[in-house]
Amino acid sequence: MVRAITQDEDVRWMRRAIGLAALCPPAAGAYSVGAVIVAEDGTELAAGYSREADPREHAEEAALAKVPTGDPRLTTATIYSSLEPCSQRSADRTPCAQRILEAGILRVVIAWREPSLFVADCVGVEQLAEAGVDVVELPELAEAARAANSHLGLS
Protein backbone atom coordinates (compact mmCIF):
# COMPACT_ATOMS: atom_id res chain seq x y z
CA MET A 1 0.00 0.00 0.00
CA VAL A 2 1.36 3.40 -0.99
CA ARG A 3 1.68 5.85 1.89
CA ALA A 4 -0.14 9.15 1.40
CA ILE A 5 2.19 12.14 1.48
CA THR A 6 0.86 15.18 3.30
CA GLN A 7 1.01 18.80 2.15
CA ASP A 8 3.18 19.55 5.21
CA GLU A 9 5.70 16.90 4.14
CA ASP A 10 5.79 18.30 0.61
CA VAL A 11 6.42 21.80 1.95
CA ARG A 12 9.14 20.58 4.34
CA TRP A 13 11.01 18.69 1.62
CA MET A 14 10.64 21.57 -0.83
CA ARG A 15 12.13 23.93 1.73
CA ARG A 16 15.11 21.55 1.91
CA ALA A 17 15.44 21.66 -1.89
CA ILE A 18 15.26 25.47 -1.86
CA GLY A 19 17.94 25.53 0.85
CA LEU A 20 20.18 23.43 -1.38
CA ALA A 21 19.65 25.92 -4.24
CA ALA A 22 21.26 28.56 -2.04
CA LEU A 23 24.48 26.47 -2.06
CA CYS A 24 24.84 26.74 -5.85
CA PRO A 25 27.75 28.76 -7.14
CA PRO A 26 26.00 31.56 -9.09
CA ALA A 27 26.41 31.36 -12.87
CA ALA A 28 25.32 34.03 -15.35
CA GLY A 29 23.84 31.48 -17.74
CA ALA A 30 22.22 29.03 -15.35
CA TYR A 31 19.60 28.67 -12.66
CA SER A 32 20.44 27.76 -9.08
CA VAL A 33 18.29 24.73 -8.23
CA GLY A 34 18.11 22.21 -5.40
CA ALA A 35 16.68 18.69 -5.58
CA VAL A 36 15.91 16.01 -3.02
CA ILE A 37 14.83 12.41 -3.66
CA VAL A 38 12.66 11.04 -0.87
CA ALA A 39 11.74 7.38 -0.46
CA GLU A 40 8.16 6.30 0.11
CA ASP A 41 8.92 5.77 3.82
CA GLY A 42 9.88 9.44 4.13
CA THR A 43 13.66 9.02 4.25
CA GLU A 44 16.01 11.04 2.10
CA LEU A 45 17.68 8.92 -0.58
CA ALA A 46 19.81 11.67 -2.11
CA ALA A 47 20.10 15.40 -2.60
CA GLY A 48 21.92 17.65 -5.00
CA TYR A 49 22.19 21.13 -6.36
CA SER A 50 23.17 22.81 -9.60
CA ARG A 51 26.90 22.82 -10.33
CA GLU A 52 27.58 20.68 -7.24
CA ALA A 53 30.32 18.60 -8.90
CA ASP A 54 30.45 19.97 -12.45
CA PRO A 55 29.81 23.46 -13.88
CA ARG A 56 27.13 22.02 -16.22
CA GLU A 57 25.44 19.72 -13.69
CA HIS A 58 21.75 20.23 -12.89
CA ALA A 59 20.28 19.58 -9.44
CA GLU A 60 18.16 16.57 -10.44
CA GLU A 61 21.14 15.12 -12.28
CA ALA A 62 23.34 15.53 -9.17
CA ALA A 63 20.76 13.87 -6.88
CA LEU A 64 19.99 11.00 -9.27
CA ALA A 65 23.71 10.26 -9.68
CA LYS A 66 23.86 9.40 -5.96
CA VAL A 67 21.25 6.64 -6.18
CA PRO A 68 22.20 3.38 -7.93
CA THR A 69 20.60 2.93 -11.34
CA GLY A 70 17.64 0.58 -11.03
CA ASP A 71 17.26 1.08 -7.27
CA PRO A 72 13.70 -0.25 -6.68
CA ARG A 73 12.98 2.53 -4.17
CA LEU A 74 12.95 5.05 -7.03
CA THR A 75 9.64 3.77 -8.41
CA THR A 76 7.85 4.83 -5.21
CA ALA A 77 10.02 7.88 -4.46
CA THR A 78 9.29 11.56 -4.89
CA ILE A 79 11.78 14.04 -6.31
CA TYR A 80 11.49 17.61 -5.04
CA SER A 81 13.00 20.23 -7.32
CA SER A 82 12.93 23.94 -6.64
CA LEU A 83 12.57 24.54 -10.41
CA GLU A 84 10.65 22.65 -13.08
CA PRO A 85 12.86 19.86 -14.50
CA CYS A 86 14.36 20.95 -17.81
CA SER A 87 12.97 19.54 -21.04
CA GLN A 88 15.93 20.36 -23.26
CA ARG A 89 19.70 20.72 -22.91
CA SER A 90 22.72 20.76 -25.14
CA ALA A 91 23.12 17.70 -27.36
CA ASP A 92 25.52 15.89 -25.02
CA ARG A 93 23.41 16.24 -21.84
CA THR A 94 20.15 14.41 -21.06
CA PRO A 95 17.32 16.73 -19.94
CA CYS A 96 16.26 16.28 -16.33
CA ALA A 97 12.66 15.39 -17.18
CA GLN A 98 14.00 12.49 -19.24
CA ARG A 99 16.39 11.45 -16.44
CA ILE A 100 13.45 11.34 -14.00
CA LEU A 101 11.44 9.17 -16.41
CA GLU A 102 14.40 6.83 -16.97
CA ALA A 103 14.85 6.49 -13.19
CA GLY A 104 11.21 5.41 -12.86
CA ILE A 105 10.22 8.14 -10.42
CA LEU A 106 6.45 8.61 -10.58
CA ARG A 107 6.00 11.69 -8.38
CA VAL A 108 7.63 15.10 -8.86
CA VAL A 109 7.08 18.20 -6.74
CA ILE A 110 8.21 21.63 -7.95
CA ALA A 111 8.05 25.14 -6.54
CA TRP A 112 8.59 27.22 -9.66
CA ARG A 113 7.96 26.83 -13.40
CA GLU A 114 11.00 27.57 -15.54
CA PRO A 115 10.80 31.09 -16.98
CA SER A 116 11.65 31.60 -20.64
CA LEU A 117 15.07 33.12 -19.89
CA PHE A 118 17.29 30.43 -21.45
CA VAL A 119 14.73 28.19 -23.16
CA ALA A 120 11.75 29.65 -25.01
CA ASP A 121 9.28 27.12 -23.62
CA CYS A 122 10.23 24.56 -20.99
CA VAL A 123 7.74 21.69 -21.07
CA GLY A 124 9.22 19.48 -18.35
CA VAL A 125 5.98 19.39 -16.34
CA GLU A 126 3.97 18.52 -19.45
CA GLN A 127 6.41 15.76 -20.51
CA LEU A 128 6.31 14.20 -17.06
CA ALA A 129 2.51 14.41 -16.78
CA GLU A 130 2.05 12.92 -20.27
CA ALA A 131 4.21 9.99 -19.18
CA GLY A 132 1.95 9.34 -16.17
CA VAL A 133 4.05 11.07 -13.51
CA ASP A 134 2.11 12.78 -10.72
CA VAL A 135 3.38 16.39 -10.81
CA VAL A 136 2.59 18.66 -7.85
CA GLU A 137 3.31 22.38 -7.93
CA LEU A 138 3.76 24.42 -4.76
CA PRO A 139 3.38 27.98 -6.10
CA GLU A 140 3.40 29.36 -2.56
CA LEU A 141 7.14 28.53 -2.49
CA ALA A 142 7.97 29.91 -5.95
CA GLU A 143 9.23 33.23 -4.56
CA ALA A 144 11.64 31.43 -2.23
CA ALA A 145 12.91 29.37 -5.18
CA ARG A 146 13.34 32.54 -7.25
CA ALA A 147 15.38 34.17 -4.46
CA ALA A 148 18.30 31.77 -5.05
CA ASN A 149 18.36 33.11 -8.62
CA SER A 150 18.67 36.81 -7.88
CA HIS A 151 21.96 36.77 -9.81
CA LEU A 152 19.89 36.38 -13.00
CA GLY A 153 17.97 39.62 -12.47
CA LEU A 154 14.56 37.95 -12.50
CA SER A 155 11.68 39.97 -11.11
Rank of each mutant, 00 (worst) to 15 (best):
Q7I: 08
D8M: 09
V11F: 15
V11L: 15
R12T: 03
R12V: 02
R15S: 06
G19R: 08
G19H: 11
G29Y: 03
Y31W: 10
A35R: 12
A39L: 04
E40W: 00
G42S: 13
T43K: 04
T43D: 01
T43A: 02
G48Q: 03
D54V: 05
P55C: 13
R56G: 01
H58N: 10
E60Q: 08
E60Y: 03
A65P: 15
T69L: 14
T69K: 09
T69W: 14
G70F: 06
R73N: 02
L74M: 13
L74W: 02
T75Y: 00
T75E: 03
T75A: 10
T76H: 00
I79C: 01
I79V: 09
Y80D: 05
E84G: 01
P85Q: 14
C86L: 05
R89P: 12
R89K: 14
S90T: 14
S90H: 11
D92S: 01
T94V: 07
P95N: 01
C96W: 06
L101A: 12
G104P: 06
R107A: 08
R113Y: 00
E114W: 05
V119K: 04
A120Q: 12
V125N: 15
Q127T: 09
L128H: 00
E130V: 00
V133D: 13
V133S: 13
V135C: 11
V136L: 06
L138H: 07
A142G: 03
E143A: 10
A144I: 00
A147Q: 14
